[in-house]
Amino acid sequence: MKECKPLALGGDLPGGCADDYETGSWRKFLPVLDRDKCIDCLICWVQCPDSCIIVEDGKMVGFNFEHCKGCGICDEVCPPKVKAIRMIEEES
């Protein structure tokens, strides 16, 4: 058997390193933001399961496509009168 590469004791990991793991390839649909319509209510931010809504200075500026799985929750929770997010089919 070849030498095992050294691993941290008992399988310890540095916290938060899943940030480096890509789950964007799971996506079948892609959220698209209409910045002109967005009112920065940030409901999409609080309800996103993948911590993908990028907020800068209190403004919704886009999506982290490394992690976005295309679930469409952001589109669904975007207030009906605003509808700044829509889902489009991911190009293969």
Binding site: T23, V46, P49, D50, G58, E66, C71
Partner: peptide
């Protein structure tokens, strides 16, 4: 929400929960 969004995200993306899973918004908040 603006104030919350400005705080550090303590549960990152890149986890393997299903698309549309209900758990992460609870944990994040």
């Amino acid at each position: 929400l603006k104030e919350l969004a400005a705080k550090e995200e303590l549960f990152t993306g890149g986890h393997r929960l299903c698309a549309g899973c209900g758990i992460p918004p609870i944990v994040r908040l």
